[in-house]
């Protein structure tokens, strides 16, 4: 599903590489936490997986595509198989909940009939069917992130990338989001989530990949945050 070999990335004007010889294999259906301090390379790694960025060195394959050689015009079609959520939700403030989710189907050319069918379904899944006509500023942070999640999964992606999705949320709300992610994972979607929320990592006991200064320092299954940190 995801195969990363010796990937390094140095950004211009920065002496230390953001990623330093990172190798990582992620299987279909995996739920992987990427943990580490700010600047440890979590977001860089996610950006590489989405092909927002290309490594300076190394090889990266995602969903069977070689992301180094992929022609620019094929990138959009590659991304249609990936959902992504962010810490800051990134909803469109002038569109309702329904329109926000529908927008990402419209712009990839889905038919109105498909949209009318798919959007209410996914809003039901995230528990927002009652609020479909609200605007983002009328929603709580947790609700906004659920809209963002709905948008990320409405096209049934094989892979869901989450960059600190609970970073702006209180612990109880964070838990709601993580429970949703679990359900999405159980439906067969591969999930890679960057976080430094210890509570969540400890609670879920999934695969934890620890990054430090651009290097993977541990990669453990079924452990908590502390365990993973200790294991290095």
């Amino acid at each position: 599903m995801i195969s990363i070999e010796n990937v390094s990335k140095t950004y211009r004007g920065s002496a230390r590489p953001a990623l330093d010889s990172v190798s990582l294999e992620i299987e279909k259906g995996d739920f992987v936490f990427l943990v580490g301090a700010s600047g440890s390379g979590k977001s860089s790694l996610l950006r590489m997986m989405l092909r927002e960025d290309i490594p300076s060195r190394g090889k990266i394959h995602v969903l069977g595509e070689n992301l180094i050689g992929i022609p620019a015009r094929k990138v959009p079609y590659f991304r249609r198989n990936i959902g992504m959520v962010f810490q800051d939700f990134r909803l469109l403030p002038n569109k309702t909940v329904f329109q926000n989710v529908a927008f990402c189907l419209e712009v990839i050319g889905k038919s109105p009939a498909f949209i009318e069918d798919a959007v209410p379904n996914v809003l039901r899944l995230v528990g927002l069917e009652e609020k479909r006509d609200r605007y983002p500023n009328e929603l709580s942070g947790g609700e906004q992130q659920r809209v963002a999640l709905a948008r990320a999964i409405v096209n049934k992606p094989q892979l869901l990338l989450a960059d600190e999705p609970t970073g702006n949320l209180d612990p109880a709300t964070s838990l709601e989001i993580v429970n949703l992610l679990e359900r999405i994972s159980q439906a067969g979607t591969t999930i890679v989530m960057a976080t430094h929320d210890r509570g969540i990592v400890d609670r879920l006991k999934r695969r934890v990949v620890v990054l430090k200064e651009g290097k993977i320092v541990s990669d453990e299954r079924g452990v908590g945050y502390e365990k993973a940190e200790e294991a290095r």
Partner: peptide, 13 residues
């Protein structure tokens, strides 16, 4: 914002 979302979800160039 719209452009960012469109690129994210894979709208063609």
């Amino acid at each position: 914002r719209e452009i960012g979302i469109m690129r994210l979800v894979g709208a063609s160039n």
